[in-house]
Nucleic acid binder design. Structure first.
Length: 220
DNA sequence: AGCACGATTAACT
DNA sequence: GTTAATCGTGCTC
């Protein structure tokens, strides 16, 4: 399959469908590596190759690192989207200034999601430069809050359907990267989260990709 | 009603 | 390596 930059905004058949997301978060997190995250902004495509992800609230045991585990595992106004059907955007605000972009996975009623942590810019780079003023290209999308800024992702996209053609954000299929280039390790920034969740290797990234947020961690 | 902290980033020393 | 920025959320009183 080849991928050529285009101004076509629908590209039917290439958009990853609901069934892709309706699986355990750790499987979706691995399979999203290499796919294209596409954001339609003012009629223009901004796109990046997904090079780093993290799985939250897989399916079996509770995950104390996951927002869905707060409030005794019941939905709140903030986390409601996580408990909904797969293939929707869960966007939340943190540290008083940053937005994080996640994709809901798994079954409805369970709070599964994958955090998109880093992208390699592919399309709409002029727009990304505007949205990341004063930063080098290498710093546009090499972190979860950075890519949210580069793609103009904020609360307005919380709850957006990623599987509907004609939307403003979605993921397009692309060939999977070679298996020996996929790395895994503990998730980043979990703070006081207790073991075993602090060390579970549910972070995935592509080896030697310059846009990974924290290179140099161990390979899986 | 009040409080501690956060799935981070950038600018420091 | 350290720390400020900055405010919504969930939890305690």
């Amino acid at each position: 399959m080849t991928h050529v930059a285009t101004s076509d905004t629908t590209r039917p058949g290439l958009i990853l469908p609901h069934a892709f997301y309706a699986r355990p978060a750790r499987h979706v997190a691995v399979d999203l590596l290499g796919k294209w995250l596409v954001r339609l902004l003012d009629g223009q495509r901004l796109a990046g190759r997904i090079v780093e992800t993290e799985a939250y609230c897989d399916d079996s045991a509770p995950d104390l690192a996951c927002h869905g585990s707060r409030n005794q595992g019941r939905p709140t106004a903030r986390t409601a989207v996580m408990f909904g059907p797969a293939g929707y955007a869960y966007v939340y605000f943190t540290y008083g200034l940053h937005w994080m972009f996640n994709i809901v996975t798994g079954r409805e009623g369970q709070a599964n999601a994958v955090l998109i942590r880093a992208l390699e810019p592919l399309e709409g780079e002029a727009a990304m430069r505007r949205l990341r003023p004063g930063r080098a290209r290498a710093e546009w999308t090499n972190g979860p809050a950075k890519l949210a800024q580069a793609l103009a992702i904020d609360a307005a996209l919380n709850g957006a359907n990623l599987t509907r053609p004609g939307g403003v954000i979605w993921v397009e299929d692309a060939p999977p990267p070679p298996g020996d280039t996929i790395c895994r390790g503990p998730r980043i920034g979990l703070g006081q989260t207790p073991e075993p969740w602090h060390s579970i290797p549910w972070r995935y990234w592509l080896a030697d990709n310059p846009f990974v947020s924290r290179p140099g961690t161990k390979k899986g």
